[in-house]
Nucleic acid binder design. Structure first.
Lengths: 256, 256
DNA sequence: AACGTATGTTCTCCAGAGACGAACAAATAC
DNA sequence: GTATTTGTTCGTCTCTGGAGAACATACGTT
Protein backbone atom coordinates (compact mmCIF):
# COMPACT_ATOMS: atom_id res chain seq x y z
CA UNK A 1 0.00 0.00 0.00
CA UNK A 2 2.63 2.47 1.03
CA UNK A 3 4.64 3.72 -1.94
CA UNK A 4 8.14 2.32 -2.10
CA UNK A 5 9.98 4.94 -0.10
CA UNK A 6 13.59 5.11 -1.21
CA UNK A 7 14.41 5.69 2.46
CA UNK A 8 17.76 6.98 1.55
CA UNK A 9 18.87 9.74 3.80
CA UNK A 10 20.22 9.15 7.27
CA UNK A 11 18.85 11.55 9.79
CA UNK A 12 20.43 12.76 12.96
CA UNK A 13 18.60 11.62 16.03
CA UNK A 14 20.21 13.98 18.50
CA UNK A 15 19.09 16.96 16.49
CA UNK A 16 15.59 15.60 16.33
CA UNK A 17 15.30 15.17 20.06
CA UNK A 18 16.79 18.59 20.67
CA UNK A 19 14.19 20.18 18.46
CA UNK A 20 11.61 17.92 20.00
CA UNK A 21 12.44 19.53 23.31
CA UNK A 22 12.29 22.96 21.75
CA UNK A 23 8.85 22.28 20.35
CA UNK A 24 7.63 20.81 23.57
CA UNK A 25 8.79 23.92 25.40
CA UNK A 26 7.02 26.02 22.83
CA UNK A 27 3.75 24.24 23.51
CA UNK A 28 4.04 23.90 27.26
CA UNK A 29 5.62 27.31 27.87
CA UNK A 30 7.71 25.93 30.73
CA UNK A 31 8.73 22.42 31.69
CA UNK A 32 11.17 20.49 33.84
CA UNK A 33 13.61 17.76 32.93
CA UNK A 34 11.48 14.84 34.10
CA UNK A 35 8.50 16.27 32.32
CA UNK A 36 10.43 16.56 29.09
CA UNK A 37 11.89 13.07 29.41
CA UNK A 38 8.41 11.64 29.79
CA UNK A 39 6.95 13.55 26.91
CA UNK A 40 9.74 12.71 24.47
CA UNK A 41 10.13 9.15 25.67
CA UNK A 42 13.82 9.41 26.47
CA UNK A 43 15.73 8.85 29.65
CA UNK A 44 16.02 11.64 32.16
CA UNK A 45 19.75 11.90 31.69
CA UNK A 46 19.34 12.26 27.95
CA UNK A 47 16.75 14.96 28.37
CA UNK A 48 19.03 16.63 30.87
CA UNK A 49 22.03 16.64 28.56
CA UNK A 50 19.99 18.05 25.71
CA UNK A 51 18.50 20.76 27.85
CA UNK A 52 21.91 21.71 29.21
CA UNK A 53 23.26 21.95 25.71
CA UNK A 54 20.37 24.15 24.64
CA UNK A 55 20.89 26.35 27.66
CA UNK A 56 24.59 26.60 26.90
CA UNK A 57 23.79 27.61 23.32
CA UNK A 58 21.35 30.18 24.64
CA UNK A 59 18.17 28.82 23.12
CA UNK A 60 16.62 27.70 26.35
CA UNK A 61 16.39 29.84 29.45
CA UNK A 62 16.07 28.75 33.04
CA UNK A 63 13.12 30.40 34.70
CA UNK A 64 11.59 30.12 38.15
CA UNK A 65 9.16 27.48 37.06
CA UNK A 66 11.34 25.41 34.78
CA UNK A 67 13.00 25.66 31.43
CA UNK A 68 11.50 27.80 28.69
CA UNK A 69 12.26 28.93 25.17
CA UNK A 70 14.74 31.76 25.05
CA UNK A 71 14.07 34.94 23.19
CA UNK A 72 17.04 34.09 21.02
CA UNK A 73 14.55 32.43 18.73
CA UNK A 74 13.10 35.84 18.07
CA UNK A 75 16.34 36.69 16.41
CA UNK A 76 16.29 33.65 14.14
CA UNK A 77 12.67 34.26 13.23
CA UNK A 78 13.31 37.87 12.45
CA UNK A 79 16.23 37.01 10.19
CA UNK A 80 14.21 34.37 8.39
CA UNK A 81 11.56 36.97 7.77
CA UNK A 82 13.94 39.63 6.57
CA UNK A 83 14.88 37.40 3.71
CA UNK A 84 11.48 38.08 2.22
CA UNK A 85 11.03 41.48 0.63
CA UNK A 86 7.30 41.28 1.18
CA UNK A 87 7.54 41.87 4.90
CA UNK A 88 8.98 45.35 4.67
CA UNK A 89 6.74 46.32 1.82
CA UNK A 90 3.54 45.16 3.48
CA UNK A 91 3.88 46.19 7.09
CA UNK A 92 2.83 49.82 6.94
CA UNK A 93 0.11 49.38 4.38
CA UNK A 94 -1.47 46.54 6.35
CA UNK A 95 -1.61 48.67 9.45
CA UNK A 96 -3.52 51.29 7.50
CA UNK A 97 -5.82 48.74 5.93
CA UNK A 98 -6.78 47.28 9.26
CA UNK A 99 -7.29 50.74 10.66
CA UNK A 100 -9.79 51.38 7.89
CA UNK A 101 -11.65 48.07 8.06
CA UNK A 102 -11.27 46.93 11.64
CA UNK A 103 -11.00 43.20 12.24
CA UNK A 104 -7.72 41.45 11.66
CA UNK A 105 -5.22 41.54 8.83
CA UNK A 106 -2.45 39.17 7.86
CA UNK A 107 0.36 38.79 5.38
CA UNK A 108 1.18 35.35 4.06
CA UNK A 109 4.02 33.80 2.17
CA UNK A 110 4.37 30.36 0.66
CA UNK A 111 7.12 28.03 1.83
CA UNK A 112 7.42 24.36 0.95
CA UNK A 113 3.88 24.24 -0.35
CA UNK A 114 2.26 25.65 2.72
CA UNK A 115 1.38 29.15 3.84
CA UNK A 116 3.06 31.04 6.67
CA UNK A 117 1.78 34.18 8.26
CA UNK A 118 4.67 36.60 8.47
CA UNK A 119 2.78 39.56 9.81
CA UNK A 120 -0.45 40.14 11.58
CA UNK A 121 -2.33 43.20 12.74
CA UNK A 122 -5.11 43.02 15.24
CA UNK A 123 -7.62 45.51 16.47
CA UNK A 124 -9.03 45.45 19.94
CA UNK A 125 -12.13 43.44 19.13
CA UNK A 126 -10.49 41.06 16.69
CA UNK A 127 -11.25 37.40 17.23
CA UNK A 128 -8.56 35.16 18.71
CA UNK A 129 -7.69 32.21 16.49
CA UNK A 130 -4.70 30.01 15.96
CA UNK A 131 -3.47 32.12 13.05
CA UNK A 132 -0.35 33.21 14.81
CA UNK A 133 2.74 34.59 13.22
CA UNK A 134 4.88 31.76 11.95
CA UNK A 135 2.05 29.26 11.85
CA UNK A 136 1.77 27.11 8.78
CA UNK A 137 -1.60 26.57 7.11
CA UNK A 138 -2.87 24.61 4.15
CA UNK A 139 -3.15 26.95 1.20
CA UNK A 140 -6.52 25.71 -0.06
CA UNK A 141 -8.23 26.53 3.22
CA UNK A 142 -7.55 30.25 3.38
CA UNK A 143 -8.28 33.38 1.40
CA UNK A 144 -4.59 34.25 1.32
CA UNK A 145 -3.65 30.76 0.21
CA UNK A 146 -6.20 30.63 -2.58
CA UNK A 147 -5.13 34.07 -3.75
CA UNK A 148 -1.59 32.81 -3.97
CA UNK A 149 -2.54 29.60 -5.74
CA UNK A 150 -4.67 31.48 -8.24
CA UNK A 151 -1.88 33.75 -9.35
CA UNK A 152 1.29 31.72 -8.97
CA UNK A 153 2.94 29.90 -11.82
CA UNK A 154 1.11 26.91 -13.26
CA UNK A 155 4.09 24.70 -12.51
CA UNK A 156 4.32 25.73 -8.88
CA UNK A 157 0.60 25.20 -8.39
CA UNK A 158 0.80 21.69 -9.78
CA UNK A 159 3.68 20.88 -7.47
CA UNK A 160 1.75 22.09 -4.45
CA UNK A 161 -1.56 20.44 -5.25
CA UNK A 162 -0.29 16.88 -5.45
CA UNK A 163 -1.82 15.40 -2.31
CA UNK A 164 -5.36 15.31 -1.03
CA UNK A 165 -7.10 18.46 0.10
CA UNK A 166 -7.75 18.06 3.80
CA UNK A 167 -11.08 19.26 5.17
CA UNK A 168 -11.09 21.51 8.21
CA UNK A 169 -14.77 22.46 8.18
CA UNK A 170 -17.78 21.28 6.15
CA UNK A 171 -17.14 24.24 3.85
CA UNK A 172 -13.53 23.43 2.99
CA UNK A 173 -13.01 22.81 -0.70
CA UNK A 174 -11.74 19.25 -0.88
CA UNK A 175 -12.36 18.46 -4.53
CA UNK A 176 -9.53 19.30 -6.84
CA UNK A 177 -11.73 20.41 -9.74
CA UNK A 178 -13.85 22.55 -7.48
CA UNK A 179 -10.71 24.23 -6.28
CA UNK A 180 -9.44 24.88 -9.79
CA UNK A 181 -12.80 26.43 -10.68
CA UNK A 182 -12.61 28.59 -7.59
CA UNK A 183 -9.11 29.67 -8.59
CA UNK A 184 -10.43 30.67 -12.03
CA UNK A 185 -13.04 32.80 -10.34
CA UNK A 186 -10.43 34.39 -8.11
CA UNK A 187 -8.14 35.15 -11.04
CA UNK A 188 -11.08 36.81 -12.77
CA UNK A 189 -12.21 39.03 -9.93
CA UNK A 190 -8.77 39.61 -8.44
CA UNK A 191 -9.66 38.67 -4.89
CA UNK A 192 -10.57 35.59 -2.91
CA UNK A 193 -13.22 34.89 -0.32
CA UNK A 194 -12.98 32.41 2.48
CA UNK A 195 -16.40 31.58 3.81
CA UNK A 196 -15.94 29.38 6.89
CA UNK A 197 -13.62 27.07 4.96
CA UNK A 198 -11.02 26.96 7.67
CA UNK A 199 -12.81 27.98 10.84
CA UNK A 200 -16.55 27.87 11.23
CA UNK A 201 -17.90 31.34 11.88
CA UNK A 202 -14.97 33.12 10.28
CA UNK A 203 -14.77 34.82 6.92
CA UNK A 204 -11.91 36.45 5.10
CA UNK A 205 -11.13 38.43 1.98
CA UNK A 206 -7.74 38.04 0.38
CA UNK A 207 -5.72 39.31 -2.56
CA UNK A 208 -2.35 38.38 -4.00
CA UNK A 209 0.69 40.59 -3.86
CA UNK A 210 2.05 40.75 -7.35
CA UNK A 211 5.33 42.23 -8.39
CA UNK A 212 5.73 42.60 -12.13
CA UNK A 213 9.38 41.70 -11.71
CA UNK A 214 9.24 38.76 -9.34
CA UNK A 215 5.74 37.41 -9.80
CA UNK A 216 3.55 36.59 -6.80
CA UNK A 217 5.31 37.42 -3.56
CA UNK A 218 2.51 36.29 -1.27
CA UNK A 219 -0.93 37.47 -0.29
CA UNK A 220 -2.80 39.53 2.26
CA UNK A 221 -6.20 39.20 3.82
CA UNK A 222 -8.60 40.67 6.29
CA UNK A 223 -10.63 38.29 8.39
CA UNK A 224 -13.39 38.43 10.95
CA UNK A 225 -16.56 36.75 12.21
CA UNK A 226 -19.49 36.21 9.84
CA UNK A 227 -21.60 38.24 12.23
CA UNK A 228 -19.69 41.37 11.35
CA UNK A 229 -18.47 40.57 7.86
CA UNK A 230 -21.49 40.32 5.57
CA UNK A 231 -23.65 42.04 2.97
CA UNK A 232 -22.24 44.65 0.62
CA UNK A 233 -19.52 45.46 3.10
CA UNK A 234 -18.14 41.96 2.77
CA UNK A 235 -18.99 41.36 -0.89
CA UNK A 236 -17.96 44.69 -2.40
CA UNK A 237 -16.31 47.22 -0.17
CA UNK A 238 -13.78 45.12 1.68
CA UNK A 239 -12.51 43.41 -1.50
CA UNK A 240 -11.92 46.82 -3.07
CA UNK A 241 -9.94 48.06 -0.11
CA UNK A 242 -7.94 44.86 0.12
CA UNK A 243 -7.11 44.89 -3.57
CA UNK A 244 -6.11 48.52 -3.38
CA UNK A 245 -3.72 47.79 -0.50
CA UNK A 246 -2.35 44.74 -2.33
CA UNK A 247 -1.59 46.86 -5.39
CA UNK A 248 0.35 49.39 -3.37
CA UNK A 249 2.29 46.69 -1.56
CA UNK A 250 3.07 45.02 -4.87
CA UNK A 251 4.53 48.18 -6.28
CA UNK A 252 6.52 48.85 -3.16
CA UNK A 253 7.75 45.27 -3.10
CA UNK A 254 9.03 45.56 -6.62
CA UNK A 255 11.28 48.54 -6.11
CA UNK A 256 13.17 47.75 -2.93
CA UNK B 1 46.19 30.36 33.85
CA UNK B 2 42.73 29.17 33.05
CA UNK B 3 40.57 28.84 36.15
CA UNK B 4 39.89 25.28 37.18
CA UNK B 5 36.69 24.69 35.30
CA UNK B 6 34.64 22.01 37.02
CA UNK B 7 33.92 20.78 33.51
CA UNK B 8 31.06 18.71 34.73
CA UNK B 9 28.27 18.66 32.22
CA UNK B 10 28.45 16.65 29.05
CA UNK B 11 27.23 18.53 26.04
CA UNK B 12 25.75 17.13 22.90
CA UNK B 13 27.89 17.77 19.88
CA UNK B 14 25.33 16.96 17.23
CA UNK B 15 22.98 19.58 18.62
CA UNK B 16 25.77 22.11 18.65
CA UNK B 17 26.66 21.58 15.02
CA UNK B 18 23.00 21.67 14.02
CA UNK B 19 22.55 25.01 15.70
CA UNK B 20 25.87 26.07 14.28
CA UNK B 21 24.40 25.51 10.86
CA UNK B 22 21.27 27.40 11.82
CA UNK B 23 23.29 30.37 12.97
CA UNK B 24 25.47 30.30 9.93
CA UNK B 25 22.37 30.33 7.75
CA UNK B 26 21.05 33.24 9.76
CA UNK B 27 24.19 35.24 9.07
CA UNK B 28 24.74 34.26 5.47
CA UNK B 29 21.04 34.23 4.46
CA UNK B 30 21.62 31.33 2.08
CA UNK B 31 24.38 28.75 1.80
CA UNK B 32 25.22 25.40 0.23
CA UNK B 33 26.42 22.20 1.82
CA UNK B 34 30.11 22.60 0.96
CA UNK B 35 30.01 26.14 2.17
CA UNK B 36 28.54 25.07 5.49
CA UNK B 37 30.99 22.21 5.89
CA UNK B 38 33.88 24.62 5.39
CA UNK B 39 32.55 27.19 7.78
CA UNK B 40 31.79 24.76 10.59
CA UNK B 41 34.89 22.65 10.02
CA UNK B 42 33.07 19.37 9.55
CA UNK B 43 33.03 16.92 6.72
CA UNK B 44 30.70 17.49 3.81
CA UNK B 45 28.71 14.37 4.57
CA UNK B 46 28.20 15.47 8.16
CA UNK B 47 27.01 18.88 7.07
CA UNK B 48 24.76 17.20 4.56
CA UNK B 49 23.14 14.92 7.12
CA UNK B 50 22.53 17.79 9.48
CA UNK B 51 21.02 19.96 6.81
CA UNK B 52 18.77 17.15 5.64
CA UNK B 53 17.58 16.62 9.18
CA UNK B 54 16.85 20.29 9.58
CA UNK B 55 14.97 20.31 6.31
CA UNK B 56 12.98 17.29 7.38
CA UNK B 57 12.10 18.99 10.65
CA UNK B 58 11.05 22.05 8.71
CA UNK B 59 13.56 24.52 10.11
CA UNK B 60 15.57 24.90 6.96
CA UNK B 61 14.07 25.55 3.55
CA UNK B 62 15.56 24.82 0.17
CA UNK B 63 15.61 27.88 -2.01
CA UNK B 64 16.89 28.60 -5.49
CA UNK B 65 20.23 29.74 -4.21
CA UNK B 66 20.86 27.26 -1.45
CA UNK B 67 19.53 26.43 1.96
CA UNK B 68 18.02 29.12 4.16
CA UNK B 69 16.31 29.49 7.50
CA UNK B 70 12.68 28.55 7.38
CA UNK B 71 9.96 30.81 8.65
CA UNK B 72 9.17 28.15 11.20
CA UNK B 73 11.54 29.99 13.49
CA UNK B 74 9.09 32.86 13.46
CA UNK B 75 6.73 30.60 15.27
CA UNK B 76 9.22 29.70 17.98
CA UNK B 77 10.22 33.33 18.42
CA UNK B 78 6.64 34.44 18.68
CA UNK B 79 5.90 31.84 21.32
CA UNK B 80 8.98 32.75 23.31
CA UNK B 81 7.80 36.32 23.27
CA UNK B 82 4.25 35.54 24.29
CA UNK B 83 5.55 34.16 27.52
CA UNK B 84 6.33 37.69 28.61
CA UNK B 85 3.36 39.76 29.66
CA UNK B 86 5.26 42.90 28.79
CA UNK B 87 4.95 42.39 25.07
CA UNK B 88 1.17 42.62 24.95
CA UNK B 89 1.07 45.45 27.42
CA UNK B 90 3.66 47.56 25.64
CA UNK B 91 2.89 47.17 21.96
CA UNK B 92 0.10 49.69 21.52
CA UNK B 93 1.49 52.30 23.85
CA UNK B 94 4.89 52.19 22.16
CA UNK B 95 3.32 52.77 18.77
CA UNK B 96 1.65 55.90 20.17
CA UNK B 97 4.82 57.09 21.85
CA UNK B 98 6.84 56.81 18.69
CA UNK B 99 4.09 58.55 16.77
CA UNK B 100 4.40 61.46 19.16
CA UNK B 101 8.18 61.66 19.28
CA UNK B 102 9.32 60.33 15.95
CA UNK B 103 12.58 58.39 15.91
CA UNK B 104 12.65 54.79 17.03
CA UNK B 105 11.22 53.02 20.04
CA UNK B 106 12.02 49.69 21.59
CA UNK B 107 10.90 47.39 24.34
CA UNK B 108 13.50 45.37 26.20
CA UNK B 109 13.48 42.46 28.56
CA UNK B 110 16.28 40.91 30.57
CA UNK B 111 17.21 37.29 30.03
CA UNK B 112 20.28 35.57 31.43
CA UNK B 113 21.85 38.86 32.38
CA UNK B 114 21.57 40.46 28.99
CA UNK B 115 18.95 42.57 27.31
CA UNK B 116 16.75 41.47 24.42
CA UNK B 117 14.63 43.72 22.29
CA UNK B 118 11.22 42.13 22.02
CA UNK B 119 9.52 44.88 20.10
CA UNK B 120 10.60 47.76 17.97
CA UNK B 121 8.79 50.60 16.23
CA UNK B 122 10.39 52.62 13.53
CA UNK B 123 9.36 55.74 11.76
CA UNK B 124 10.31 56.50 8.20
CA UNK B 125 13.43 58.49 8.98
CA UNK B 126 14.63 56.34 11.87
CA UNK B 127 18.29 55.39 11.75
CA UNK B 128 19.23 51.83 10.88
CA UNK B 129 21.29 50.11 13.54
CA UNK B 130 21.90 46.59 14.68
CA UNK B 131 19.24 46.82 17.36
CA UNK B 132 17.04 44.22 15.78
CA UNK B 133 14.29 42.31 17.43
CA UNK B 134 15.75 39.36 19.30
CA UNK B 135 19.23 40.82 19.47
CA UNK B 136 21.01 40.61 22.77
CA UNK B 137 22.84 43.62 24.16
CA UNK B 138 24.90 44.36 27.24
CA UNK B 139 22.69 46.04 29.79
CA UNK B 140 25.19 48.70 30.86
CA UNK B 141 25.49 50.10 27.34
CA UNK B 142 21.88 51.06 26.74
CA UNK B 143 19.23 53.34 28.20
CA UNK B 144 16.82 50.44 28.52
CA UNK B 145 19.44 48.27 30.18
CA UNK B 146 20.45 50.91 32.69
CA UNK B 147 16.80 51.59 33.48
CA UNK B 148 16.34 47.95 34.22
CA UNK B 149 19.49 47.66 36.32
CA UNK B 150 18.55 50.74 38.32
CA UNK B 151 15.19 49.39 39.36
CA UNK B 152 15.64 45.63 39.57
CA UNK B 153 16.32 43.80 42.79
CA UNK B 154 19.67 44.34 44.44
CA UNK B 155 20.40 40.64 44.30
CA UNK B 156 19.66 40.35 40.60
CA UNK B 157 21.82 43.36 39.84
CA UNK B 158 24.76 41.89 41.70
CA UNK B 159 24.40 38.65 39.82
CA UNK B 160 24.41 40.44 36.49
CA UNK B 161 27.28 42.79 37.17
CA UNK B 162 29.89 40.17 37.97
CA UNK B 163 32.13 40.42 34.94
CA UNK B 164 33.87 43.36 33.35
CA UNK B 165 31.94 46.09 31.64
CA UNK B 166 32.88 45.96 27.99
CA UNK B 167 33.40 49.24 26.15
CA UNK B 168 31.63 49.78 22.83
CA UNK B 169 32.43 53.46 22.38
CA UNK B 170 34.64 55.93 24.24
CA UNK B 171 31.52 56.96 26.18
CA UNK B 172 30.59 53.55 27.48
CA UNK B 173 30.61 53.33 31.26
CA UNK B 174 33.21 50.71 32.05
CA UNK B 175 33.91 51.47 35.68
CA UNK B 176 31.72 49.65 38.12
CA UNK B 177 31.47 52.49 40.61
CA UNK B 178 30.67 54.98 37.89
CA UNK B 179 27.88 52.71 36.79
CA UNK B 180 26.45 52.38 40.28
CA UNK B 181 26.48 56.16 40.61
CA UNK B 182 24.72 56.46 37.30
CA UNK B 183 22.12 53.97 38.47
CA UNK B 184 21.53 56.06 41.59
CA UNK B 185 20.92 59.06 39.40
CA UNK B 186 18.52 57.07 37.24
CA UNK B 187 16.61 55.82 40.24
CA UNK B 188 16.27 59.38 41.43
CA UNK B 189 15.03 60.93 38.22
CA UNK B 190 13.10 57.89 37.00
CA UNK B 191 14.61 57.76 33.54
CA UNK B 192 17.92 56.94 31.91
CA UNK B 193 19.94 58.65 29.21
CA UNK B 194 22.28 56.97 26.81
CA UNK B 195 24.63 59.46 25.28
CA UNK B 196 26.65 57.66 22.61
CA UNK B 197 27.53 54.89 25.03
CA UNK B 198 26.67 52.12 22.63
CA UNK B 199 26.84 53.69 19.20
CA UNK B 200 28.63 56.92 18.48
CA UNK B 201 26.18 59.50 17.22
CA UNK B 202 23.16 57.90 18.83
CA UNK B 203 21.28 58.94 21.93
CA UNK B 204 18.41 57.35 23.79
CA UNK B 205 16.04 57.96 26.67
CA UNK B 206 14.75 54.99 28.61
CA UNK B 207 12.48 54.19 31.53
CA UNK B 208 11.71 50.99 33.41
CA UNK B 209 8.38 49.22 33.25
CA UNK B 210 7.35 48.58 36.80
CA UNK B 211 4.49 46.45 37.93
CA UNK B 212 3.68 46.78 41.60
CA UNK B 213 2.90 43.10 41.65
CA UNK B 214 5.79 41.62 39.72
CA UNK B 215 8.51 44.25 40.03
CA UNK B 216 10.44 45.39 36.98
CA UNK B 217 9.19 43.70 33.84
CA UNK B 218 11.65 45.37 31.47
CA UNK B 219 12.20 48.80 30.01
CA UNK B 220 11.39 50.97 27.03
CA UNK B 221 13.32 53.63 25.21
CA UNK B 222 13.27 56.04 22.35
CA UNK B 223 16.46 56.52 20.39
CA UNK B 224 17.77 58.68 17.59
CA UNK B 225 20.78 60.58 16.28
CA UNK B 226 22.35 63.30 18.42
CA UNK B 227 21.69 65.73 15.57
CA UNK B 228 17.97 65.48 16.21
CA UNK B 229 17.88 64.57 19.86
CA UNK B 230 19.24 67.47 21.87
CA UNK B 231 18.44 70.50 24.00
CA UNK B 232 15.30 70.72 26.08
CA UNK B 233 13.58 68.28 23.78
CA UNK B 234 16.08 65.62 24.72
CA UNK B 235 16.67 66.64 28.32
CA UNK B 236 13.14 67.39 29.46
CA UNK B 237 10.32 66.66 27.08
CA UNK B 238 11.23 63.22 25.78
CA UNK B 239 11.93 61.84 29.27
CA UNK B 240 8.50 63.01 30.41
CA UNK B 241 6.77 61.33 27.51
CA UNK B 242 8.75 58.14 27.91
CA UNK B 243 8.05 57.96 31.63
CA UNK B 244 4.38 58.60 31.04
CA UNK B 245 4.22 55.75 28.53
CA UNK B 246 6.17 53.49 30.87
CA UNK B 247 3.70 54.16 33.67
CA UNK B 248 0.74 53.23 31.52
CA UNK B 249 2.43 50.07 30.29
CA UNK B 250 3.32 49.15 33.85
CA UNK B 251 -0.28 49.41 34.96
CA UNK B 252 -1.49 47.46 31.96
CA UNK B 253 1.16 44.82 32.51
CA UNK B 254 0.05 44.33 36.08
CA UNK B 255 -3.54 43.51 35.38
CA UNK B 256 -3.43 41.01 32.56
C1' DA C 1 9.86 15.84 62.82
C1' DA C 2 10.04 12.07 60.14
C1' DC C 3 8.57 10.23 56.13
C1' DG C 4 7.65 9.57 51.12
C1' DT C 5 8.02 11.25 46.70
C1' DA C 6 9.04 14.46 43.59
C1' DT C 7 12.64 16.87 41.46
C1' DG C 8 17.42 17.92 39.12
C1' DT C 9 22.04 16.13 38.75
C1' DT C 10 26.08 12.91 38.38
C1' DC C 11 28.07 8.42 37.33
C1' DT C 12 29.38 4.33 34.65
C1' DC C 13 28.98 1.43 30.73
C1' DC C 14 28.05 -0.27 26.26
C1' DA C 15 25.73 -0.23 21.59
C1' DG C 16 25.12 2.10 17.83
C1' DA C 17 24.72 6.61 16.00
C1' DG C 18 27.31 9.99 13.73
C1' DA C 19 31.64 11.66 11.84
C1' DC C 20 34.89 10.87 8.20
C1' DG C 21 36.78 10.28 3.63
C1' DA C 22 36.39 8.39 -0.55
C1' DA C 23 33.68 7.65 -4.51
C1' DC C 24 29.81 8.97 -7.28
C1' DA C 25 26.77 11.98 -10.14
C1' DA C 26 25.38 16.37 -11.91
C1' DA C 27 25.78 20.75 -12.57
C1' DT C 28 28.64 24.73 -13.75
C1' DA C 29 32.82 27.11 -15.36
C1' DC C 30 36.34 27.56 -18.51
C1' DG D 1 35.51 19.47 -24.70
C1' DT D 2 37.73 19.29 -20.20
C1' DA D 3 38.20 20.74 -15.48
C1' DT D 4 36.13 22.16 -11.08
C1' DT D 5 32.78 22.40 -8.01
C1' DT D 6 28.54 21.14 -6.47
C1' DG D 7 25.25 17.81 -3.90
C1' DT D 8 24.69 13.00 -2.70
C1' DT D 9 25.65 8.11 -1.31
C1' DC D 10 28.42 4.38 0.61
C1' DG D 11 31.19 1.81 3.80
C1' DT D 12 34.00 1.73 7.95
C1' DC D 13 35.28 2.63 12.61
C1' DT D 14 35.27 5.43 16.79
C1' DC D 15 33.73 7.80 20.18
C1' DT D 16 29.51 9.97 21.50
C1' DG D 17 25.24 10.08 23.26
C1' DG D 18 21.70 7.16 25.44
C1' DA D 19 19.94 4.20 29.37
C1' DG D 20 19.52 3.34 34.08
C1' DA D 21 20.95 3.38 38.57
C1' DA D 22 22.51 6.16 42.31
C1' DC D 23 22.80 10.53 44.54
C1' DA D 24 21.35 15.02 46.41
C1' DT D 25 17.74 18.41 47.36
C1' DA D 26 13.42 20.26 47.65
C1' DC D 27 8.60 19.63 48.60
C1' DG D 28 4.22 17.96 50.76
C1' DT D 29 1.93 15.11 53.76
C1' DT D 30 0.72 12.88 57.90
Amino acid sequence: MAPSEPRRTATIGATETSFGIVEYLRDSVTAGVSDIANELGVSKSTAYNHVRTLVKLGYVAETDDGYALSLKFLNLGDHARRRHALYHAAKGEMDDLVDAIGERGQVMIEENGRGVYIYQVRTDHAVQTDSHIGNFVDLHTTAVGKSYLAFCEEERREAILVGDLAALTPETITDRDDLLEELDRIREQGHAFNDEERITGMRAVGAPIISDRHGVLGAISVSGPTTRMNGEWYRREIPEKVKQAARIIGIRGTYS
